[in-house]
Amino acid sequence: MHLPNWVLMSVLMIADGFILNGPSGPLVAPLGSSVVLPCYVDKPLPVKDLKVEWRRTDSETLVHLYQDGESRAEVQQQDYHDRAHFFTDQIQHGNFSLCLDSLTAEDEGNYTCKVYSQQDSGETVVQIKDVERLLVSGSSRSISASVGEDVTLNCSVDSHITPEHIEEVSWKKTDEDVEILVLLYQNNKTLLDSSDEQYRDRVEFFTDEIPKGNFSLRLKNVRTEDTGVYMCQVFAGRLSAYTTVVLERLDSTATKRVRTVGFIHVFLPNIMMFVAFVLWGVTEGFLYETIFCCALFILRPLMVIHVAPYLKMSGW
């Protein structure tokens, strides 16, 4: 019967005189963090002729090796250089655990710890699973603004990803299969000169918010031609993710004032008539007529509120 990996990990493997211990279940850690893969014995082993080998079980890739009294970093696979290391001072106490830094999604999988001590040997399996992916979120609704105003396009990176692990953030306008670079953040710097000419000196990040993973874009002095779809794309290690924000048709200040005056003309008379009929009902005592008239004058503005989004979509 084939046993699943998580069962194998919970088993203590006995090999010719010493017991090699591993974790009781899979290891879960955030992207970019460090994780310790446990592998240890209950009592110290002789350091002479001791060999500890960590490998990926899916590919036999050598993650790290301890041999001849020292860590042999020069023989480990390139992807693990400067990322995988032993607790060297603990090996003499029987602790052969491996620390893996800057965790990536590709690090998910099974790892085998093999220990050779003179004539004895043993191994255990450790699984890393569910490394958190790169998550980028923006605004769920379209953004609108008046010509000449400033507008904020939202883009946030999952809080588990620290800024030093973010290699690049780019804002692009992606209308009609044409990408226009709006602003670029790369190697912990905002590259203002990278912006397309039509956006230069009009876009910026909220610098104080970047350490929190907030890469929202401020677009200043909005123009009519700024309408369209904007994409915020984030690169961290071998991962990338993006979100999009839609900047809707922009209203001029004059159009906005006309619309405001129009709504006032609809609401104000109806509200005044509603109040007048309430007072009339109180003083004259015509209950049913008052209720009917009040309902009529309160339903009119409510109907306008209901149809307002459709009027906006139609360009009113």
Rank of each mutant, 00 (worst) to 15 (best):
Ile210Lys: 02
Val245Ser: 05
Lys173Pro: 02
Tyr242Thr: 05
Asp196Met: 06
Asn188Lys: 13
Ala236Glu: 03
Ser195Phe: 00
Asp226Arg: 08
Ser240Cys: 09
Ser195Gln: 02
Pro211Lys: 14
Lys256Phe: 10
Thr174Trp: 05
Ser194Glu: 12
Pro211Gln: 13
Gln198Phe: 09
Asp193Cys: 10
Arg200Ser: 12
Glu179Ser: 11
Trp171Pro: 02
Thr174Cys: 08
Leu184Asp: 03
Trp171Asn: 05
Glu179Gln: 08
Val246Tyr: 00
Glu248Ile: 05
Val222Phe: 01
Val246Met: 09
Leu183Trp: 02
Thr174Val: 07
Ser170Leu: 05
Leu250Gln: 01
Phe215Asp: 08
Glu204Asn: 15
Glu225Trp: 07
Leu219Ala: 11
Arg257Asp: 09
Thr224Gln: 10
Glu204Ala: 15
Glu176Asn: 10
Arg259Ile: 11
Asp196Thr: 03
Glu248Thr: 09
Gln233Lys: 10
Asn221Glu: 10
Asn214Phe: 10
Val229Asn: 05
Arg218Phe: 11
Arg200Leu: 14
Arg218Lys: 15
Cys232Ser: 02
Val178Leu: 11
Ser252Val: 02
Ala254Thr: 04
Lys172Val: 00
Gln233Asn: 12
Thr255Trp: 02
Thr260His: 13
Val266Arg: 10
Tyr242Met: 09
Glu204Val: 15
Leu250Met: 06
Tyr199Trp: 06
Asp251Thr: 05
Val178Asn: 10
Val261Met: 07
Asp177Ser: 14
Ser195Leu: 00
Thr224Ser: 14
Val182Glu: 04
Tyr185Ser: 03
Arg259Ser: 00
Ile180Gly: 03
Thr174Ile: 07
Glu179Asn: 11
Lys189Asp: 06
Asp251Glu: 07
His265Leu: 15
Thr260Trp: 10
Asp226Asn: 08
Phe235Tyr: 04
Ile264Glu: 13
Val258Gln: 09
Thr207Cys: 13
Asp208Tyr: 15
His265Asn: 15
Trp171Leu: 09
Lys220Ser: 12
Arg257Pro: 06
Asp208Met: 14
Val222Ser: 05
Tyr199Pro: 07
Leu217Gln: 03
Leu250Arg: 06
Val245Met: 01
Leu217Asn: 08
Thr244Leu: 05
Leu239Pro: 01
Arg238Pro: 04
Val258Cys: 09
Phe235Pro: 04
Glu225Ile: 04
Asp193His: 14
Thr207Val: 15
Lys220Arg: 14
Asp226Phe: 03
Arg200Asn: 11
Lys172Trp: 04
Glu209Arg: 15
Gln198Gly: 05
Val258Phe: 06
Asn221Val: 08
Ser216Thr: 09
Asn188Thr: 11
Ala254Lys: 09
Lys172Cys: 00
His265Tyr: 15
Glu209Ala: 15
Thr243Pro: 00
Phe263Gln: 03
Arg200Asp: 08
Thr244Phe: 00
Leu191Met: 11
Ser195Asp: 04
Lys189Val: 05
Ser252Ile: 00
Gln198Arg: 12
Thr255Gln: 12
Met231His: 08
Leu219Ser: 04
Asn187Leu: 06
Arg249Val: 10
Cys232Arg: 03
Arg257Ile: 07
Leu181Val: 04
Thr253Gln: 14
Gly213Leu: 06
Thr224His: 13
Gly228Arg: 01
Phe263Ile: 09
Lys173Trp: 01
His265Val: 13
Ala236Arg: 00
Cys232Trp: 04
Val182Thr: 03
Thr227Pro: 05
Ile264Thr: 10
Leu183Gly: 04
Asp201Lys: 14
Lys256Trp: 01
Leu250Phe: 01
Met231Ser: 12
Gly213Arg: 02
Arg223Met: 14
Asp201Cys: 14
Arg200Thr: 04
Asn187Cys: 01
Gln186His: 05
